[in-house]
Write a protein that binds this DNA or RNA. Structure first.
Lengths: 193, 193
DNA sequence: CCGCAATTACACAGGTCTGTGTAATCTATG
DNA sequence: CATAGATTACACAGACCTGTGTAATTGCGG
């Protein structure tokens, strides 16, 4: 039964490289030959695992759809931590924006599966925000969660153009103001944590 | 001297079409042949006006660098109006995000002139926000202007993925909260308008 | 050790793209 | 009308892309 394992390992190697190149240079800018050459396999082998470039694109995006690991930190700390992580991501290594937004912007076909995956990702993050806000006892958790998501996406877009991690800190400060405003004007939070 | 006028008119026709196609389908996705065919001129003529596709891209982006027309409406109204206009833009016609962010994301060369133009555009808008905030007597006008710009960019990015103009309204509401929070905590605004 | 599946090298079809070369034609200006 | 510049049609080079066909080779499981 090691055959399936070997096959899965090869697929993962392909996806790792595709991720690095697709994200770093753009999906349209990277050819299938380039990915195969980077790994050191033949193009034929790559097509044996992914029957078309579109399949590879979908797999590349799906692989990035990992739900956030549950944490026992206080909700507000988790929310602020998301912006801190973004700031570190912008500062460290290759930052080229949100891979999902880039994919949607780069693939002109409106019915592409990338749109569905991108929407799923954004909604997943928004719901994560919403859950934390509800634990803070905030009544307007749903609209506020969308606003936090907008701040995240805005910091990412601004960081692409400005190349400055400070935009994440600015977004974080804005998020803090919004959450606090919703806390005082809404019902009292449950002081459980 | 009508020769120069005719030449300028042709350049404008080319740029109009390039704008529509570049923005609507992506810079990399649209070939020079397609633009020429759409206008009904030969590819040779297009290359007579723009010696390379890169020149055309730069001209396309530069043409969108128009400063906002001065307005005598109250500053807060102008700020909120920017989000209202964004909401209408998302809802009406072809919306494909911010052309400058898209260009930077699509062109992998980090030294491309598009980066400079995109930065100039974002900074132009931020300074416009800053001036209005200063007229409101807000002490933290500069950092707040960056936060408003982040909200704009975030609403744009979220709208691409969600296809829902409501994100602009959410961003607008968040902007209102941020401006009001900065107004009450800072020095009193000058009640001139 | 046999056989099967994966992998490889290599060529190629068919399409796209940017940019140029050329010779003919059109058009407005002097 | 004459001339110079703009435009046209058309071919083509050179590069890149996705995807396939084929035959030889490798390596692992039974």
């Amino acid at each position: 039964m090691a055959r399936a394992d070997v096959r899965a390992a090869m697929q993962e190697r392909i996806l790792e490289t595709a991720d690095r190149l697709f994200y770093g240079q753009g999906i349209r800018a990277v050819g299938v030959d380039t990915i195969a050459a980077e790994i050191g396999i033949s193009k034929r082998t790559l097509y044996n695992h992914f029957p078309s470039k579109d399949d590879l694109i979908v797999a590349y995006l799906s692989r990035r759809l990992k739900p956030a690991p549950p944490s026992d930190r206080p909700p507000l700390e988790q929310i602020m931590g998301a912006f801190d992580r973004l700031e570190r991501t912008i500062a460290t290594g290759v930052f080229r924006g949100c891979p999902f937004v880039n994919a949607v912007a780069e693939l002109k076909e409106p019915a592409h599966a990338a749109n569905r995956i991108a929407l799923a990702f954004k909604e997943q993050r928004r719901v994560w925000f919403q859950g934390l806000l509800e634990r803070l006892g905030i009544a307007t958790a749903e609209p506020l969660s969308l606003q936090l998501q907008i701040l995240m996406d805005g910091a990412i877009a601004a960081a692409i153009v400005r190349g400055d991690p400070a935009v994440a800190a600015a977004a974080r400060a804005a998020a803090k103001v919004l959450v606090e405003a919703a806390s005082v004007s809404g019902p009292r939070p449950i002081p459980s944590d």
